[in-house]
Amino acid sequence: MIDIKNLHKSFGEHEVLKGIDLHIDPQEVVVIIGPSGSGKSTLLRCMNLLEEPTSGTVVVDGIDLTAKADINKAREEIGMVFQRFNLFPHMTVLHNIMLAPVKVRHVPRAEAEATARALLERVGLSDKADAYPPQLSGGQQQRVAIARALAMKPKVMLFDEPTSALDPEMVNEVLDVMKGLANDGMTMAVVTHEMGFAREVGDRLLFVDEGRIIEQGVPQEVFENPQEDRTRLFLSKVL
């Protein structure tokens, strides 16, 4: 589903990604962990070209994003959930979810609305359809953001620290929605600090540090028996 080869990304002089190779299978849930500044968010943002790779190739669902592909077309298939939700504050929750399907996929309004309401029910927010995002709690906003991404019926979902901006008591409501998605077979790449989620839901755990994938494997095994010193050091701090 996602195929990344020798990906490099520099911001000016500073090289953030130093050659990443990563293949993600359909329906696989890959959890990416690592210290802040390790490049894990940049790696995720290269998967829908919010960051343009300096070199290397990123192929998603058969489309090479790094060739002169129609990036908008490709992004229709790649949902993204941000740390800070980024809902559209001037639109109701319902319209937040309907906007892209109507404008981009040209779904008839009635159909888009039905889908939006179904998604709201799925994330447990049926009663908030007519609310504006600023009226919702962080956890509720993030669940709307997930519904908004799902409305495009993407083939892949990218999560960029989806619970990092939330109060602790709201983390689980978002993680539960994500677990549901994983169980339904969604292909997911998740940058997170939630080790419990990684262990429970992840098919594969990636430890990224200083722009490289240091170690990867089945989460349980990496957690219990890390092979690299840096992984061990990081895990000893967060577990």
């Binding site: 919010l50 077309k73 992004r75 229709e76 790649i78 980024n86």
Partner: peptide, 17 residues
């Protein structure tokens, strides 16, 4: 906020949209 443009673009909308 720059996140608004990113959110729009990540949904497949063009820059003008």
């Amino acid at each position: 906020d720059a996140g608004q443009m990113e959110a729009g673009r990540s949904l497949g909308m063009t820059w003008p949209q």
